[in-house]
Simulated scan of single mutants.
Amino acid sequence: MTLLDICNEIIEGEDGKVKDFAHTIKLTYLSEFERFEKEDMKVKLRKLNIAEEDGLLFYGKDYLIFKSIYYFNEVPVFRKEEDAIIFLNKIGIEPNRTLKSLSFEEKRKLGNEFLNKALICVPKEYSKYLPYIIFGKEYYFKGIELKEYVSSLNGLYKIGKRKKVRDLIVNMEIPDEDDVKKYKKKIAKRINKFKKKLNDEYEINYFNLKFKGKKFKCQYIYIKPSLWDHVKSFFGEGIELKYYPTLINVAYSSEKIDFLKPLFIFVDKKDVAVYAKVPKLVYLKNNLSLNHLNLEGKYIFYGNWSDEEFYKFLKI
């Protein structure tokens, strides 16, 4: 089960604001923000006191700004934190402020300067799509950016607090900070392990994917957990499957991963657990989806394949 299942349960069993709130959480989880532009959703958002703002699409509104732009890996403008700090000092924005603390004019300045840097990093055919991954609509619930609120709920779900997550949605409440910290501590540990394996162990392979008459070169990582990996997972020291939707996004921060190519991670257990990401620039330019591969999602995809499906796929 996933956070999506909890949302569906609430949508089916509740009415009024609670149902609308669960539906909003579901759409956010699925990155279906274009639905928010429809008039019926605008009415629901107002009733739920969810505010819409024009802003910057960097994650981590309460992070130090230099960390937010450093972590932004749709276009890896900065490979070192120091480079992000130098950039911010050069444009007159204090690196140790937060995104949330910036005025509208400061946000616009930061966005435009970042866009200019990003333009240098991408091929010309992607240039016109860059503004759409830097600037956009943001939605705030009780002062928390909605994507980050949903991320916290999803994190609590992953550490076993299913009932608490359901109660938070039904009561339209903010997660306890201590619970969020527990998840962040767990995921940080997995991220560090994954980064080390990615840099030292994992081999990057390639295949061509056909979609609507076009051919896309994709990269993939094949992981066959050892017996020792299974033992470590049993004691909570391994990398459990539930963390891979986050880890596949983290992978794009590595120089081993091409930020303009889709990435697949295949984890071969009883079946093959499949996690994939289509970079937003690739999605915007080509409308590339992986749903036809029996995978769920929009930018981040996931699913399970049999061994037969897996080997047949790689022969395509």
Rank of each mutant, 00 (worst) to 15 (best):
E14P: 05
T2I: 11
K210T: 10
N286A: 10
G155T: 05
T246S: 05
K128N: 14
N205A: 12
V170Q: 03
N89D: 12
L281I: 02
N199M: 11
G55Q: 02
G303H: 07
E173R: 11
F141I: 05
K261V: 03
E39S: 15
I159P: 06
K26P: 01
Y129P: 06
S289A: 06
E82R: 13
N287R: 11
L130M: 06
E52M: 08
R108H: 07
K164T: 15
F36D: 04
G236H: 10
L30P: 01
E145M: 08
K184S: 09
N96A: 06
K186T: 08
D258I: 02
L27A: 11
N208A: 06
L284R: 08
N286R: 07
R35A: 04
K124H: 12
E145S: 06
V150L: 01
D54A: 13
P279K: 07
V77A: 04
C7Q: 06
D178A: 14
L314D: 03
E34K: 13
L168G: 08
D229C: 03
V282I: 15
G111R: 03
E173D: 15
M41A: 12
F234D: 02
G16K: 04
F58N: 01
P245V: 04
E106M: 08
L110T: 00
I223W: 08
E34P: 04
K184H: 06
F36V: 05
W305I: 04
Y29V: 01
I300D: 01
W228G: 03
S226R: 11
I169N: 00
Y63R: 14
K100Q: 10
K17V: 05
G136S: 11
I223V: 15
